[in-house]
Structures are given as structure tokens and as C-alpha cells.
Amino acid sequence: MIDGFNFAYLDEATKRMIRRTILKAICIPGYQCPFGGREMPLAYGWGTGGIQVTASIIGINDTLKVIDQGADDTTNAISIKNFFKKVCKIETTEDTEKATIIQTRHRIPEKKLSENQILVYQVPQPEPLRRLEPKEQETRKLHAYEEYALMHVKLYEEISHFGSVIKTYAYPVRTNKRYITDPSPTPKFDNPKMDFMEALQLFGAGRERRIYAIPPYTSVQSLDFEDHPFQIQTWDERCDICGSNNSYLDEIIINDKGEKKFICSDTNYCEKNLKT
């Protein structure tokens, strides 16, 4: 560990404060709990919420996996993993199954998670109603009164204009039949994985100083209408590396003519698929 800093960077009092907030968040699924977020040595908007949550729950026996866009080797995922290696000296892994804590930005791993795992999301904007109402004082009231007409009207308008809801990521969900929750900017493809997930899901928003949680085995429903049921993305193509036709694909431009190939966004899933 580097000199002059505590295990996992944050001092113990701060970690305790964050763990208390996490416990409260677990008790009220989907409710955004304010917390006294700290400045981290990584920039706001680059995962400071997730990092603070991870730093507060990580122990010496944990194995950490960090992904960004589903990949273990994207630059910021590596930077965060290196940060924890520096301040905790813990084991890290790329193997989804071996990790006890998975910190993620923009994806949920394709592999089903289990009870002894915790998924930590980095959240840029925890408030699903923010685009509809810029004031925090107002949105807190709307949640308190369970007054979600704004959101339903918005989805209805999209359907009437475009024939379908045009949100492709950060698609709002209802947690435990109560709070409308932002799943962080994961693609809507990942929303069904959140429903009754066996792993604990923790969400950290550093800049906005909010933590929220979805406990294991909790109902998470994507908002929709009976005659316009929620649908996830599909591709006509398969992964060019492993041949998968059931994972989220990224499009890659391979030459100057703009020809495209598609590959799995979840690199660990792709690798394992290739081996079997």
C-alpha cells in the first residue's frame, strides 16, 4: 500500500458513514440516499461514486473486477483497478465468476451473478426525473408522493411520436413496485438482468452525492404500457470473435470504406465463449 493513506484510501470514519448510507439504501430499495461524498483522486464523472462505495465495502479477502463498457481492459476500468491495487493490495480478476465485487460502468455482465457477489454501478445522474424536472427540491417531492405522471406522459409522447419509446440506455425502472430508479446508463438490454438478481446491486453517484441500492431478489420492472411492452435490443449479426447471438454487441469499423464487424461488449464472456 502507498504510504500516508488508509486501506482503500478513505479513512475509517468516512467508510463507516458510507456503509451506514448503504444499509439505509438497502432498506429502501431504489430510494436515493444523500451522503457526504468526498473528493477522490479521480475526477468526478469518472466513477467516484462507485469508487467510494467499493472502497467502503472492500476487505482484504475480496477479489475485484472492474469493467467499463463491459470490457476489463478499457482505459478507465484499468485506471480504477490500478487505483485499488495501489491503495488495498487486493486480488483483482477479469473472471466474472471469481470476483466478489464487480464495479461497472454502462454494463451488467452477461454471466448470471450469484448471491455472494456485489455489483457496484458508477452513476453519473441518479435522478431518473432530472431531464423532466431540473430542480432537486421538486424531484424529491415527486418521489415522496409517488407522483410519476411526468415520466409516464413522457414515455407516452415518445410512443405517439416515434411508435416506440426511444430510450436505449438509462431506461427507467420501477424498483420493488415503488421508486422509479435510474439503472445508470446501462443499455436497456441489461434491464431484465436486474429483476430478481441474486447479487446485491449498489449504485454510487459521487458528484451528486447519492447512493441507492437494489437488494437481492427484488422486483425491477422496466416502465412500459400493456399495448407497448418493453423490448430489448436485438442484432441480426453475431459476434465476430465468439459467434454469440445472445450478448450485447459493439460495432467496430474495420477499414476506410466503413465496413463493420460486431463483437461482444462483455470481453470476459466473449473469451470464455471462445474457449468452450
Binding site: 464523472g45 478499457t74 454502462h106 443499455p187 458528484r207 459493439d250 460495432e251
Partner: peptide
């Protein structure tokens, strides 16, 4: 400005996954 520069500069981070969603749409 610590918050502001962080969030503005986060746009430099990869957004392939979200952008893929927008492309499809």
C-alpha cells in the same frame, strides 16, 4: 470547478455501449 471539469471531461470516456444503442435506434 472540480465537479464541473470532472463531468465535462467524462465525455472523453468510452461510450461505445450507449452509442451502439443510439445507432440501432
Amino acid at each position: 470547478n472540480v465537479e464541473a471539469q470532472g463531468f465535462v471531461s467524462h465525455l472523453k470516456l468510452p461510450h461505445y455501449v450507449d452509442f451502439q444503442g443510439e445507432l440501432n435506434l
